[in-house]
Nucleic acid binder design. Structure first.
Length: 471
RNA sequence: GCGCCCAUCGUCUAGCGGUCUAGGACGUCGCCCUUUCACGGCGAAAACAGGGGUUCGAGUCCCCUUGGGCGCGCCA
């Protein structure tokens, strides 16, 4: 056993768009792995593409991670700020003869690729400047720096998910390290940053698997240690198609607006590609204790919002009532709806047990709880209107009279209504449903006697009077 | 085109040569509970892509086919 080294992982998104669900999963896995081993989880913004990187995207990224509660350690590293150091490494390689100047123009390379394609040959840089003497340098063409990659043998990536992946070196070309303007490419920057940041485990999307081979060549040229790799299978949309803006690839933060809880999202994301036997509901603390690289699946997965709904319902029922009230108020504020405060908020908290039991999302919870502080007279939904037939209204009027003398708690109210139904010769539901419709304006609600207790005598009697057909 | 990766119910997955007449979860469909809706309980339908090997024995190992995905930029 070698000396136990502290684990360092990183999440390294490029700020060219929002953080989608695939990126969020990558972040989660890195975070989990670091936490599992008491290591460090770093955040690095790969903003070397100056054209496409935006501050809005950086903010969205941070907002997304913050919502998911995936806190990173230390300062955020901005890759572009380290360009100087990256170039330095390229120059070191140049000096050692492990990289070289290439004066080929974009047009020449384009022509080269066209010719290769036409001839049915693999498309890759043909090494035309690899062995040319410095005297061939074109005075008016700023050169790029290319790595002098091995042309024989193979480059092997020992991947924790995919196993041992081998690439013949003759299919890997001499890729660009430094652009003609002297700025580093992604391939170089990643390697240098990972080394400088002491990254021990690179957990990222499968789309980087072939890059890993190229990156390994840089690492080997520099004589640096290899990180452990784990390339995660990509995520697909519900229809099996690639995740894209058109295919329901929402920014992770938008799931908040859809009414999901971050802990539910974490649990859902965790099970997308990772398993622990038959366990499904895995709280974050448990996930930290269990997470490993060995049980990451190798095949791509589709997202399934139905399962997220189910999980969300689970976490919703387990959530603290005060917290849910806060979340609900925030949601209503964002939607421009009336925000309950003071007594109304108390009402909400007291009703929460019954409410959260029957909601899968915060949006649903909001819809189901709005009757609590809706202005009188309540507007009736379709089902409620149907329930409140003239006969039902008449019954309601009698019931109201019977209720006037009842102590206002759920048990006493239930007993009173049951007794009422019996003397009237109707089923309990015949009395309870009109009651529900009058009190909530809906056909469904939490147990009606609980609702009555929460709403209070005065409000209940008033709402019944609004509907009892007596003008 | 070249290279790489993947392949168990509709979906997420368990399975690491025999205990698989393939297990769990979501979803779907019944039934029960019940003042509505949920929750919960019980039950049902539902999968090893195809073909060759290896082996006494294959969902599990190898090969091919098919089907998906990713990569092949002076993008990341």
């Amino acid at each position: 056993m070698v000396q136990a080294k502290s684990i360092v992982t990183r999440f390294a998104p490029s700020p060219t768009g929002f953080l989608h669900i695939g990126g969020a999963r990558t972040a989660l896995f890195n975070w989990l792995y670091a936490r599992r081993h008491g290591g460090t989880f770093r955040l690095r913004i790969e903003d070397t593409d100056r054209q496409r990187s935006t501050n809005e995207a950086i903010e969205a990224l941070i907002e997304g991670l913050t919502w998911l509660e995936l806190g990173w350690d230390g300062e955020i590293v901005y890759q572009f700020a380290r360009a100087q150091r990256h170039a330095e490494v390229a120059h070191t390689l140049l000096k050692q003869g492990l990289a070289y100047h290439c004066y080929a123009t974009a047009e020449e390379l384009e022509a080269m690729r066209e010719a290769q394609k036409a001839a049915g040959k693999p498309v890759r840089y043909d090494g035309r400047w690899r062995d040319r003497p410095a005297s061939d340098a074109r005075p008016n063409v700023p050169p790029v720096v290319r790595i002098k990659a091995p042309q024989t043998g193979e480059t092997v990536i020992a991947d924790k998910v995919q196993g041992e992946v081998r690439f013949d070196n003759d299919v890997l070309d001499d890729f660009v390290l430094l652009r003609s303007d002297g700025t580093p490419t992604y391939m170089l920057s990643v390697v240098v940053d990972d080394f400088d940041m002491g990254i021990t485990h690179v957990i990222r999307g499968d789309d980087h698997l072939t890059n890993a081979a190229r990156q390994r060549q840089i690492i080997d040229s520099m004589g640096w240690p290899q990180p452990v790799y784990a390339h995660l299978p990509l995520l697909h949309g519900e229809d099996g198609a690639k995740l894209s803006k058109r295919h329901g690839a929402l920014g992770i933060h938008e799931y908040e607006a859809l009414g999901y809880l971050p802990e539910a999202m974490r649990n859902y994301l965790l099970r997308l590609g990772w398993s622990h036997g038959d366990d499904e509901v895995i709280a974050t603390e448990q996930a930290i204790a269990w997470f490993d690289l060995e049980h990451i699946g190798r095949s791509p997965a589709r997202i399934d919002l139905k399962k997220l709904d189910n999980l969300n319902g689970h976490y919703l029922r387990a959530a603290d009532n005060e917290r849910l009230a806060d979340l609900l108020c925030a949601l209503r504020r964002k939607k421009g709806q009336h925000v309950p405060g003071g007594q109304q908020r108390d009402l909400l908290v007291r009703a929460m047990n019954g409410l959260k039991e029957r909601a899968k999302t915060m949006v649903e919870l909001n819809d189901n709880s709005s009757f609590l502080f809706a202005p009188r007279p309540l507007s009736l939904d379709e089902k409620a209107a149907k329930i409140l037939s003239p006969a039902a209204r008449a019954l309601l009027a009698k019931l109201a009279a019977a209720l006037a003398a009842t102590p206002w708690d759920a048990a006493a109210l239930e007993a009173a209504v049951r007794a009422f139904a019996e003397t009237e010769g109707v089923k309990l539901g015949d009395a309870a449903q009109p009651l529900r419709a009058a009190l909530t304006g809906k056909g469904t609600s939490p147990p009606i006697f609980d609702v009555m207790a929460v709403l209070g005598r005065e409000e209940c009697l008033a709402r019944i009077a609004d509907q009892d057909g007596i003008r």
